[in-house]
Design a protein around this nucleic acid. Sequence first.
DNA 1: TCAAAAACTTGAACTACTTCAAGAAATCAA
DNA 2: TTGATTTCTTGAAGTAGTTCAAGTTTTTGA
Lengths: 190, 190
Amino acid sequence: MYKALFDHIEKFITLETSDIDKLESCLEISKIRKKEHVLEEGQICNTMYFVVKGCMRQYIINAKGTEQTLQFGIENWWITDYLSYHNHVPSSFYLQAVENSEVIAIDKNVLESLLIEIPNLERYFRIITQKSFGAMQMRIKFLFTMSAEERYHHFNDHFPDFVQRVPQYMLASYLDFSAEFMSKIRAGKV
Amino acid sequence: MYKALFDHIEKFITLETSDIDKLESCLEISKIRKKEHVLEEGQICNTMYFVVKGCMRQYIINAKGTEQTLQFGIENWWITDYLSYHNHVPSSFYLQAVENSEVIAIDKNVLESLLIEIPNLERYFRIITQKSFGAMQMRIKFLFTMSAEERYHHFNDHFPDFVQRVPQYMLASYLDFSAEFMSKIRAGKV
DNA sequence: TCAAAAACTTGAACTACTTCAAGAAATCAA
DNA sequence: TTGATTTCTTGAAGTAGTTCAAGTTTTTGA
């Protein structure tokens, strides 16, 4: 059940059996129904979520009242609002399930003590966060250098299955263009 | 000399004296002249840079041959290409000094062994990377929700001194609009 | 299984930006 | 101190996208 997480951790470090037990005793799986929120704007985010199954997203509601997806989190990704988490300030974001999902939620206080007890786990989080940061640097590059149509095709080429999984309007906003424009790109009307 | 870095580290964790010595023996300050590169596109990035003095930037050259700044790193920031660093693949970016700068360069192999020896240092990097990731999430939010003019004023309100430090065209591309448009915003001609 | 809700499509009008080209101002290096 | 380089400005023309509104299709849930 927690296997997905342990498998993911073992890709980067090796845990002692005692540490596995220690960690396991702190974990709890929860099921999040499609459209359910685990964080809403204004709340303080005290939890990190590891997606075991399904898909979560981070989004905002912009000045026009439209939702804009800033980030997706699928299987084997961690998702949280790191700024609210670390600075203990109200979040600017919503965290919501896009599909019925299963996540491992781990509370900040629990996690921070665990990390002090298990230095190797600290290492795991350092590595995956640095890698995510690298992915984000590439994302900024793509946003800055590609046209809307190029971003769509690029994403579609790299993640064809994922494109099928989420509503088009969510993907459109993630790629930073309107849902209507997405429709026209797909129809070849641009 | 390395004080800036030790001061920064001590904001997040406490190092044993022996660890301070160990770390110090691995550090080396280098001076980077304005416009000098520490990384060029296509090279593999094996170094992390801590800016002691001055300003560095990460940029690309786009399809039209124009430079686009993706990231600045000023005093007390780490800067590197995390994707190239972790995946050992050629970098998509340039890393260059915007001003005459002093940086502490630390080699990947040296750092990775140090991190294993000093778990607390692992913790330091985990925390600062997560915080940087949080800042990046906010940056995406601003890019997605604000107009060019709003982005300029928002940045100018929050970092008035920094705006004076870098050429306008670099800041314009960092905020994702053209240098010419920046000129018009500043002249109130939009 | 069917009504309601959610998601997608389409075209027309609009606009926030880019591009280009040329000149002016500021900074740099010898 | 001056010529060369870099940076900034300006206006005119163009365009990659948005917005709106209405209709269609698909999915959902009782």
